[in-house]
């Protein structure tokens, strides 16, 4: 039950792009084509889940017991940066095909604020290890859902007759705004399903 809540919350209600504003740069940057959006999504889902799993023990078994919680930001960003490097090296050795598909997206993930954001939110929400991993996965899936849907719309937008000053980023942002409105419809879902 509680996992259903975390998953629904992460994917739909508190969607990272549409309601929390996390990971907007890659969302706008790599959404020209559905195919690249899918590749980026897979890379983000993988890294975000693993990052949630690794930052949890770093905080709860290292920083917190030692009383140095204030090093959280420094520690998390270093862990995430090394993790991305590590994944890149392992992937290159183990599965060159996968590396070819996802490799180019990996370096971009270090500065994807969604990954660090998920790690910090896990700490703030005081999740247990399993909850933190599920939350990281759900948030990443939500991000992926957003970018793939958006890329689909953008592919069609290329063919549309958009007024010249709005071409490119402006119309992309307005489109995101409209998608955000439709995702707003999920806001009441949680209360209806779980509170009563």
């Amino acid at each position: 039950m509680e996992f259903v809540a975390i998953i629904l919350g992460g994917v739909l209600i508190n969607n990272f792009v549409f309601s929390r504003f996390l990971g907007i740069c890659p969302f706008l940057g790599v959404s020209q084509k559905v195919e690249t959006a899918m590749g980026m999504s897979m890379a983000v889902i993988f890294v975000m889940t693993v990052a949630s799993a690794i930052t949890w023990p770093v905080y709860h078994l290292l920083l917190d017991p030692l009383g140095i919680e204030y090093l959280r930001t420094v520690a998390f960003i270093l862990v995430i940066a090394s993790l991305v490097q590590f994944v890149e090296i392992v992937m290159q050795k183990v599965s060159p095909t996968l590396y070819q598909a996802l490799g180019i997206y990996l370096p971009l993930i270090t500065t994807n604020c969604a990954v660090l954001g998920a790690a910090i939110l896990n700490v703030q929400a005081e999740y247990t290890f399993i909850q933190a991993v599920v939350n990281g996965l759900a948030a990443a899936v939500g991000w992926a859902l957003a970018i793939v849907l958006f890329a689909g719309i953008r592919e069609r937008l290329d063919l549309a007759d958009v007024p010249r000053p709005l071409q490119g980023f402006p119309i992309a942002l307005i489109t995101t705004g409209l998608m955000s409105i439709s995702f707003f419809g999920f806001q009441g879902l949680f209360k209806q399903l779980f509170v009563r």
Binding site: P165, P170, L173, G177
Partner: peptide, 22 residues
């Protein structure tokens, strides 16, 4: 002031800047 407004405001402001720039 809700999340959708952020995207829409930003998009329209960028469009307006493009128009002025042109």
């Amino acid at each position: 002031i809700l999340p959708p407004g952020a995207f829409i405001t930003m998009g329209i402001l960028l469009g307006a800047l493009n128009l002025v720039g042109k």
